[in-house]
Design a protein around this nucleic acid. Structure first.
Length: 344
DNA sequence: AAACCATGCAACCGCCAGTAG
DNA sequence: CCTACTGGCGGTTGCATGGTT
């Protein structure tokens, strides 16, 4: 028995939302919260499926959304996060090819590959826009995804950077062969080359298949990657240059970096200093039209805008207060509703 | 002015994990 | 334990808009 699509139900409207529909949904959620999405269309008098309502709320109606174009800092952050969160996709594919090769030889590759695919959860690996969006308050995963696909990818290509691997295109075109089959962690995590202290690279051997694993991407992570570049050398940084190291050197460096990183995370003073010194621009050296800076000047943002957390203390609550939760946005809700309909 | 093209964005689709019955 | 439902996510599509010929 196949499962029915949530939009299978008859007479459900699809396509663009009308202002009336928006108003109905906004009113309903403002008043009652979203609760069970599947019941919302009926309660709110909408001819939509719950999924569509949820999407509309998350991507458009949510009061904590930041409008307008992305700032330079946001774009840089997206690129950096993409390099970290998106790259597992590459590593996984390397392993997939290995598995395919092995199982072809064993004549059971189809069955076993399918089995492994399911058991190890390979299909879950992809670029995690939602995690990237979580580091950009007020931005949705959809918005970031669109920005990446329509804009940032091209900019990186124009700069000679492969948007998938975040390596120089020349290196990618020459193949990964120069370093053997072993994925180059350094190359896949360009942040390491520009910032200090760098995060410990993911330990592929033990973590790459683990759905629970993620790089050190706690809520306090984002700005820290940018926070400690000193000496104004960012502009002179060349994209994607990979230092050649022996494996031993890499291992030693990883251990050392991990120690530093742990100390760094555990030391609020270091983190605060890093945040104050952050100079995020120019890591990717991309020419972008000047935009009002949302991130670096919280006082200039509108009262309804989310801000970029400037201290760890400010950041941490974000971890525990998901933006999606309408219950915590009461004030914003009222403000938005009042602004939208002018009668509250 | 009309046709064509490129771009950006909103929304849909399909899949997956978690969970209640 | 099994099934169906729900919410969440990423990839893709299609439309609206603006620019170019």
């Amino acid at each position: 028995m196949g499962r029915q699509s949530c939009c299978y139900k008859q007479k459900l409207k699809k396509g663009l939302w009308s202002p009336e529909e928006d108003e109905k949904l906004l009113r309903h959620i403002t008043k009652y919260g979203h609760g069970c999405w599947s019941s919302i269309p009926k309660q709110a008098g909408l001819q939509r499926c719950g999924k569509s309502c949820r999407l509309r709320w998350i991507n458009y109606l949510r009061p904590d959304l930041k409008r307008g174009t992305f700032s330079q800092e946001e774009e840089n952050l997206i690129i950096e996060l993409h390099a970290v969160l998106g790259n597992r996709y590459i590593h996984i594919h390397v392993h997939i090819y290995i598995y395919i090769y092995i199982y072809i030889i064993c004549f059971f590759f189809l069955f076993l590959l399918g089995f492994l695919w399911r058991i190890l959860g390979f299909s879950r690996f992809s670029i995690r826009w939602s995690q990237i969006a979580a580091r950009l308050p007020g931005r949705t995963d959809n918005e970031i995804k669109n920005l990446w696909n329509s804009c940032l990818k091209k900019k990186l290509k124009q700069k000679g950077i492969d948007p998938v691997t975040h390596k120089p295109l020349s290196e990618v075109e020459n193949g990964e062969g120069s370093g053997g089959n072993k994925p180059s962690l350094v190359g896949h995590h360009p942040i390491h080359q520009y910032t200090s202290p760098p995060p410990p690279p993911p330990k592929l051997s033990s973590n790459w298949f683990n759905p629970e694993f993620s790089p050190p991407m706690t809520a306090s992570y984002g700005p820290l990657y940018y926070g400690t570049t000193t000496g104004g050398s960012a502009n002179s940084t060349t994209w994607g240059l990979v230092q050649t190291q022996t494996e031993e050197e890499e291992e030693e460096e990883e251990e050392e970096e991990e120690t530093k990183w742990t100390e760094f995370l555990n030391n609020p003073l270091l983190m605060a200093a890093a945040l104050q010194n952050q100079t995020p621009q120019s890591y990717y050296n991309i020419e972008i039209k000047s935009e009002p800076c949302y991130l670096t000047n919280s006082s200039s943002s509108s009262s309804n805008d989310m801000w970029w957390p400037q201290t760890q203390q400010q950041q941490l609550p974000l971890q525990h207060e998901p933006l999606q939760n309408p219950d915590i946005c009461g004030k914003d809700m009222q403000r938005l509703t009042a602004a939208a309909f002018g009668h509250i």
